[in-house]
Design a protein around this nucleic acid. Structure first.
Lengths: 240, 240
DNA sequence: GAGTGGTCTAGACCACACG
DNA sequence: GTGTGGTCTAGACCACTCC
């Protein structure tokens, strides 16, 4: 049986991985749902079991799936969690979990930098900046409050954007190629406005990620990303 | 349970991985040196090529070796890859600021794993673990509460250590070469004991870093690192 | 007993690199 | 050409879980 006749260059195990991921992302396979067994995928794709096994094993390594010997393979029940570096793609991450992403744009206006903000952004006080405030939601539940300042001179069209379909970070990544990033992570008590926007009680601590991004040696954006502790944690796996 | 017996029960691909790692660590295989080819390892271990291939593929994914199709497999030259959150060396970090580091060892005892801990460490309930609790101080002020469990079978001498002059992390790094790390960061309310040990008020939120470390494909340690929000933040700068 | 995942074999074909 | 890694097959045995 020759599979090489096909022009598609992707290995079979990669296609199977992609197929399962798609099923999860599209909602066909909900969290905790059972993924078709190796043998049924063997029949479905007309490949050997070793190939299916490799696909599912790698999905397990990636944390997409949980496998229990003698029982079956299941869609990982991932709590809201973020990779520090990838917090920018909160929309993508939520959708990757097979959940519904939505955004509530509180404001996106032009301001003159206060002394605090101008200091942080290395500007002169009073220089124009954009100030956007957006609540990111997973399955309708607020998961991140994004309070962002953008240097107007670097991205003059930022204020015209409607961030319903694209997140500010996706916009920034596209318009101002990321050159350098600085993260600070703190635990805080949310202020009253934050409590209301995130729909949390006053005694719930929050994870605050302060993110500065540079493009072309210019500091372009300062974002305060606030996450309720009960709904979010940062996760980072790496190999030294 | 003897650690050596587990090696005999280990899968063949794991034995081959371990063998190659040993060769590298012992200096038999220097950085950039060529690792024996799949076919020669097939003969040496009298196994199938698929088994050897899996071993080398996983070593590649771990960054231990570099593989070039049509050429060969080579020992990776040690890449620094300065990654996230260097909480590892809290003592070093404090001294790097020119401040005085001190440690208060609350306990370092042998226990039998509770069901919670055994689950997290992938052990059977009741298996022996070491449980150390240490308060790390900067200029005499508590800055990190380290609550750590270590798998006894992996590091049988951990319980004998006096962590006044060397931190558990430094000990682990020396005894069990770091292979993989998982971090989770949360914001929490400290419990009463934590408040006392860190000398903080009950309403001060804390940054909790949960750190799991693997060595040689074995999970060896689980640490809860709690930091008062007013005295600590994580900082991370990087260039993509 | 039937089904699951975990491992392993002994072959095979392919693309690529090198001399 | 030979040697390398990348992939894939069609079986197999095992330990395990669930009914």
């Amino acid at each position: 049986m020759d599979h090489r006749i096909e022009l598609n260059a992707a290995p079979l195990y990669a296609k199977i991985k992609h197929h399962v991921k798609q099923q999860i992302q599209s909602g066909v396979l909900a969290p905790n749902a059972m993924v078709p067994s190796e043998n049924s995928l063997v029949k479905q794709f007309n490949v050997s079991r070793m190939t299916v096994h490799r696909a599912l094993r790698e999905l397990k390594e990636e944390g997409v799936v949980v496998r229990v010997s003698g029982v079956g393979t299941f869609v990982a029940d991932t709590q809201p969690k973020g990779h520090l570096i990838k917090v920018n793609n909160i929309a993508q991450e939520i959708r990757g979990r097979g959940h519904c992403y939505s955004a509530h744009v509180v404001q996106n206006i032009a301001e003159n930098a206060t002394s605090d903000i101008s200091f942080e952004l290395h500007l002169e006080p009073g220089e124009p900046v954009f100030h956007s405030v957006i609540v990111h939601q997973e399955e309708g539940v607020p998961i991140q409050l994004e309070d962002r300042y953008v240097v107007s001179s670097a991205l003059p069209e930022y204020g015209d954007m409607d961030f319903q379909s694209i997140t500010p970070n996706e916009y920034l990544m596209a318009k101002a190629p990321l050159q350098k990033v600085e993260h600070r992570v703190r635990a805080i008590h949310p202020d009253l406005l934050t409590q209301q926007l995130l729909d949390i009680k006053s005694d719930e601590p929050c994870l605050l990620l302060i993110r500065k991004t540079w493009s072309d040696d210019v500091l372009v954006s300062l974002a305060h990303l606030t996450h309720p502790s009960s709904r979010f944690e940062f996760v980072d796996k790496f190999k030294p």
